[in-house]
Design a protein around this nucleic acid. Sequence first.
DNA 1: TTCAAGTGTCATTGG
DNA 2: GGCCAATGACACTTG
Length: 637
Amino acid sequence: MHHMKKYFTEGLIQFTILLSLIGVRVDVDTYLSGYFSPLIETDGGPSSAFIQTPFHHYRDTAAGHQVHPKCPELDYFFTSRRLLNEVRALGSPGRFPTRVSAWLVHLVPDDGSDAGEPHDLSGDPGDEEINPENHREEDDEHRAGEGFGLSVSQDLTVSRPCCAAGELSKEETLLDQVNEEEVKDEREQEETSPATLNQLTQSFALEQEDLLGSSTLPPPLSGLELPPQWHDFLSEFDDFDSIVPQHMSDLEAELPNPISYDVSLQDAMVTGGDSANSRPASSRTPLFRLESTNSSHSDPSQSSAGALPSLLFSLSGNSSRNETSPSQMGGYLDEAVFDHINMLDLGNLGTIDPQMLDGMQGDMDTPWPEDSDSGLSLESSSRSPASPSTSSDSFCEDEGGATGYSSEVESLSSKGGACAAAYRDWSPVNLVENIWHDHSYSTPQAQNSTPSSWFTAIKQEVMSEDEAEPEEVSRDEHRVQALGLPFSAFEIVNMPVENFLELLDSQNLSGSEVSLLRDVRRRGKNKLAAQNCRKRKLDAILTLQGEVEGLSVQRDALLRQRSHTAKALSAAAERFETLSRTVLGQLRDEYGHPLNPEHYTLHCSANGRVMVQPRTNTTSRTMTSSKMMKRKKDKKP
DNA sequence: TTCAAGTGTCATTGG
DNA sequence: GGCCAATGACACTTG
């Protein structure tokens, strides 16, 4: 019987630890500081329905557990208490909304009085008159006791249980021995009158409080050995441990929501970085933090509930960032779309001696392809284009100007000299420094490339395209050619504005011609801008597409994890139910009969109190040992 | 002929 | 105020 109690106590402690591990706050303070009454407590105070097993009952058990207030064995319990406090410090998640109302009803040694007669453990028969508050509590407790159908005395006593005669006598013998020893100790310490069992227990409770209040730390809980069933249960929780802390927050966050919503670009960018912070991790970090006794050594950052979302979103963010990277986006882009943009990427093109430019200037007037960057549209309203003469019609080969102009252009050819002079003042260097300084994100600029390099590269690229396709001179190009200017439309578009203005001033152009050149420049720039804009759009779309795919993968993973977690939770709930039944089966009413697990259940309140409740909801009838302890303290002078 | 995609252009806005 | 990039809207071209 005693060793059963010992195991029962150990089991209750371990069970309490487990409850704490799964988020149920279990108050064993009173248990540890009082009589090791295991599963107790609401805030209501002591309950007459409880008969707490005196600490001394655990002495001289068959297993040799010498439990004594001054016994080193207390360290075991104090260590448990400390560990439990650590576990509690992790918080109570409310994940298990159950309320455990533990009623520990067990034997109280009979010191010779009649069986069935209540024993006032407080040793203060006049308590009710002295403390009306306790009286009310007692009334409540009494009603609660009635609710449980337990014949419990008012004042922390219970009738002598109806046990088997042999077992009872054996227990009585042991209890008497314990009582004698405790009476002796009690007398030595307090020199008080009658060393009743109640006084002994009370004094022991005080001793425990003193011990708990001391700064002496208990030794590590190295000697704790768990029965096999607890090992099984813990092993299950080990698996649970690896799952729950990481995924609970995600489950709590209504998993589909962060995934199924329409992803805007901004959202996607934001979530890519720190969406895990959308919910403060600190609010859920204590959830199912199952480090148990290792909690003090665990790294909170690793067990943070927000770790998973953070990790996942960081992964997503990385992916998105990678995908956003223009360098990697190239794989998604249609080459045909960005041919013109790529044409502007001149940074890595080979440098060509600027002097070569002079020899190639004759080719600069090569009309752009219709779709080239600077190719201009065929406006129907414009004048009829001049016949495409690609030989030498635009660029200044010499001061004599270009040749091959159309009749309309020829009228302006005489202006080529001034045009050439203006060109001499305009170096391609300025093109690089002034034109390619724009914010075009899709055209990485070779800032360190020489002007001649990009200028020649453009020419080469244009030439290569010209070789591949039949020439198509844009309408604006024809207009520029018709003006007899020594510049192509491309150059007009890309030359610095200072040079362009100087060109306009130096050419003695009419108002319509100036307007034409301005329109050519404006349209050419706008075309490039439109291309860049469309490329950005495409990039954004592709980025979002990649992020959506990443989120879809993440969603699938989270769904799998949720399923796994649900299974683990279900298994844990089953184990919890089994253990509850086991615990209830070991609890006794005042008659020594085990509580019927069919009629009672363990519940954990929101504050972690463990109580025994009837299957029907009668929480108001629950009795708590905290009330009992409070009343006992109040009674104590 | 219709449709979708690509492209150029215009107008507007904001830096 | 001018220049420029960005962008929505529209029209045109093309397959």
